[in-house]
Simulated assay, not measured.
Amino acid sequence: MPRYLVVQAPEDGVRLITLQRPEALNALCTELLAELAAELESAERDPATLAVVLTGSRKAFAAGADIREMAERDLVGILNDPRVAHWQRIASFAKPLIAAVNGFALGGGCELVMCADIVIAGEDARFGQPEINLGIIPGAGGTQRLLRAVGKPLAMQMVLTGDPITARQAQQAGLVSELTQPELAVERALQVAASIARKAPLAVRLAKEALLKAGDTDLATGLRFERHAFTLLAGTVDRDEGIRAFQEKRPAHFLGQ
């Protein structure tokens, strides 16, 4: 049983994971990250889970890393930090991951948001990378994913000043896909996840992988991957079902085959 997570069993193909460390505004201690990585790996293996929604509290999605824990680590501890492996496991989750964000998403919290594929934010959300104020820099992908998400000028401003941005600024910059009232963020994220869960699972997985390739490779390599994935899907049962359903004007019933 996780100590710092509340997990709802899959419903309509969607698993809901809630960060639950309210006394520390969901600060990402090593144990919490380990639990989250393990839970996502469990979701990866579970055929009943087709998408995952990740959220925190109304006050904070996650307010950053655990500063007390960081202060206890010397150079050897930093070099052998187990959190690095946990972050890699979280970032490699292959199924759709939707973040529902309210309140603070700072430091590691903002980096965790950027591991998600879709971000639904309440209008009160705040996103930032304040590590510079501690004499350090983001260490869980913040400098790399942030620049890819919002562009060089805003990423530079956020990282070098440590100042957060509003949910509306985050949406305008491309970090957030949709804004909603704070009390509706989780509900809306579940709706989006349920919509994805009704699609053909193989197509969803390959579509996500193809889109991620666009940020990791050159255009020619990305196009080759896209064409290969398109060809693979052409031979699936779900592709035939999708075309038949369209022709017969009925909902498709995909099997993941």
Rank of each mutant, 00 (worst) to 15 (best):
2 P>I: 01
5 L>G: 00
7 V>D: 03
7 V>Q: 02
8 Q>G: 03
11 E>H: 10
15 R>Q: 14
19 L>K: 02
23 E>R: 10
28 L>H: 01
31 E>Q: 13
32 L>E: 04
33 L>Y: 06
35 E>C: 02
37 A>F: 01
37 A>I: 00
39 E>L: 01
44 E>R: 06
48 A>P: 01
51 A>F: 03
51 A>G: 06
55 T>R: 06
57 S>K: 06
59 K>Y: 10
60 A>T: 08
61 F>V: 11
62 A>W: 03
66 D>Y: 10
67 I>C: 05
69 E>L: 07
70 M>Y: 10
76 V>K: 14
77 G>H: 12
77 G>N: 04
77 G>D: 09
82 P>N: 11
87 W>E: 03
89 R>H: 03
91 A>C: 11
92 S>M: 00
94 A>P: 02
98 I>M: 04
98 I>V: 14
100 A>S: 13
103 G>P: 09
106 L>E: 06
107 G>P: 12
109 G>V: 07
109 G>C: 05
111 E>D: 09
113 V>M: 10
116 A>V: 02
122 G>W: 03
124 D>I: 04
124 D>V: 02
130 P>N: 09
131 E>R: 07
132 I>V: 15
133 N>A: 15
134 L>G: 08
136 I>Y: 12
139 G>E: 13
139 G>V: 04
139 G>W: 04
140 A>T: 07
140 A>V: 11
142 G>K: 04
143 T>N: 10
144 Q>F: 11
148 R>W: 01
149 A>H: 04
157 Q>E: 14
158 M>V: 06
162 G>E: 07
167 A>N: 03
167 A>C: 07
169 Q>A: 14
186 V>P: 00
188 R>A: 07
188 R>C: 03
189 A>I: 11
192 V>E: 09
195 S>P: 08
198 R>H: 08
205 R>W: 01
207 A>L: 13
208 K>T: 13
211 L>S: 13
215 G>R: 10
216 D>Q: 15
220 A>Y: 06
228 H>S: 15
232 L>D: 07
232 L>H: 12
237 V>N: 11
237 V>S: 08
242 G>S: 09
246 F>T: 11
251 P>C: 04
251 P>A: 07
253 H>T: 14
254 F>I: 06
256 G>F: 09
